[in-house]
Design a binder for these strands. Sequence first.
DNA 1: TCGAAATGTAAGCAGTTGCTTACATGGCGC
DNA 2: GCGCCATGTAAGCAACTGCTTACATTTCGA
Lengths: 189, 189
Amino acid sequence: MTAEPARRRDSAATRAALLDAATGLFAERGFARTTVRDIAARAGVNQALLFRYFGSKDALYAAVMAGQGRELLEAEQPERLLETVLRRMLEKTPRPGDHLLFTALRSEGIDSAAAEIRKALGDDYIRVLSTLTEAEDGDLRAELVLAWVIGISMVRSTSAKEPLKSADPEEIVRLVLSGARTLLERTEG
Amino acid sequence: MTAEPARRRDSAATRAALLDAATGLFAERGFARTTVRDIAARAGVNQALLFRYFGSKDALYAAVMAGQGRELLEAEQPERLLETVLRRMLEKTPRPGDHLLFTALRSEGIDSAAAEIRKALGDDYIRVLSTLTEAEDGDLRAELVLAWVIGISMVRSTSAKEPLKSADPEEIVRLVLSGARTLLERTEG
DNA sequence: TCGAAATGTAAGCAGTTGCTTACATGGCGC
DNA sequence: GCGCCATGTAAGCAACTGCTTACATTTCGA
């Protein structure tokens, strides 16, 4: 950021700074707990410009989420998706994009843009995960797996020192995968 | 409520009405999204009385949570706790107390009273669930199970028509229990 | 009966939120 | 050089938040 002090006025750079700041803050705090003033401040920009360039906080969120958080979905083969997602989630210093994904998925609230974006993202994950089982109720099983990932992300984000926060990521991955495998493989009770 | 129109002024009844209204609203919307004005309105009471009787919104939340949501913990034998919790969560019209439990457990935010209460409640559940496994990392496994329940509660509360919302509760219970059993029973990879 | 304490009410304060408006200024085509 | 538009700024609005204050009314013991 602020690489080129060349042009003193640069709408593209300003837009990018706002997008950057918003990505980081939405990832750290979620949608509701992030203020437009926070975003403008981190971007080093007057907050009125946020509205000039994006129209509203909702629209800015949509702009941030466009593309973000979908790379995994497109890059990973279904068999490895869950494992990769877990590993990314458990990284000590998660990439903002990944972090944003989990914050989005577990976002509370029926309000505004966030809810619809969350739903669409979740649906995509369920679609991929459901290809892993032959069970009739594959969607349900896939959604249960996704719910698990979301729950783990939740608990980790709100607790400071519980086992989930300090445990070896490999161990967590191993345990969750074993449970998920049971869920996806067994068809009968 | 409002059984006795006898005494026109009744601090106990007013307190109870506030507590009732707060229980319902906190269960439905969570802590942050519930307003003191909402609570006072539902209780049919002047909002200043909320502060006279409880001091603050935080304190009111603490009063609501005192006792609530712990009956299951004390009443159920550990082996049946997970199953019972799941069933309660999946009930079509959950009792306010149960609903409150899940809303509390999945409450976001580092702020205020809610966070500490959530943590204490979660710790209690982990303690009980961890007795179900002999693995060394029983706490971690228990926390993963709890995270699953929380995740399911999350996903159900934010989506209107996904499989999780419409599926047969028995089926969900069966699937989750099978996954959790794998998680708790297997010690080696 | 009467006065203090308990109970209830209306109004508003100070802070925060998303968003708008009226204005200043820099840069580019002519 | 000059004028116009893109860019940036300061201030503030209206709604909402938790909470407080100053005041009215009821209740009940003495």
